[in-house]
């Protein structure tokens, strides 16, 4: 069994998803997976165990708020760390996501170092 932690990046924009995945791949103790939206993320989370979810707020099909709320409503995902990506200045989005149970947030424009540091801090790697 692999000792690596697993992260799932949930982002509808391929550009942003690619950026976050590429940044996280710098962390050796981490395996990174991708999902296009909230529904795709839930499917992948049901199939496999993940330690961290990094999700955008504005997504089609199922947005980041709904995803966080669904995950926190399920006892199975209580230990899952959740990071939301919000637009800088969108204080209400940040507060709502944290109230719903997110562990941390990252502001856009996303800085690779910030993504890595937040991930390391939450996963202790």
């Amino acid at each position: 069994m692999s000792e690596n932690k697993k992260a799932l990046v949930v982002e509808d924009s391929p550009t942003m998803r690619h950026l976050i995945v590429f940044a996280l791949k710098r962390l050796r103790a981490l395996e990174v997976y991708e999902a296009d939206d909230g529904v795709d993320a839930l499917k992948k989370l049901a199939r496999d165990h993940y330690d961290l979810v990094i999700t955008d707020i504005n997504m089609p099909v199922m947005d980041g708020f709904k995803l966080v709320s669904t995950l926190r409503g399920d006892a199975k995902y209580q230990d899952l760390r959740i990071v939301v990506i919000t637009t800088e200045g969108a204080e209400s989005d940040r507060q709502r996501a944290m109230q719903l149970g997110a562990n941390a947030y990252i502001s856009k424009p996303v800085q690779a170092a910030h993504v890595c540091n937040t991930t390391k801090m939450l996963l202790g790697i």
């Binding site: 391929p14 550009t15 690619h18 950026l19 800088e88």
Partner: peptide, 28 residues
């Protein structure tokens, strides 16, 4: 990542979408 996305397609609309995302998310 930006150049990869910009040159990953020959679809005109997708290129414009990539330019929008890059300008919005990377340049801020």
């Amino acid at each position: 990542v930006a150049t990869y996305q910009l040159h990953s397609t020959l679809d005109y609309d997708e290129v414009l979408r990539a330019i929008t995302e890059v300008t919005l998310n990377f340049i801020g």
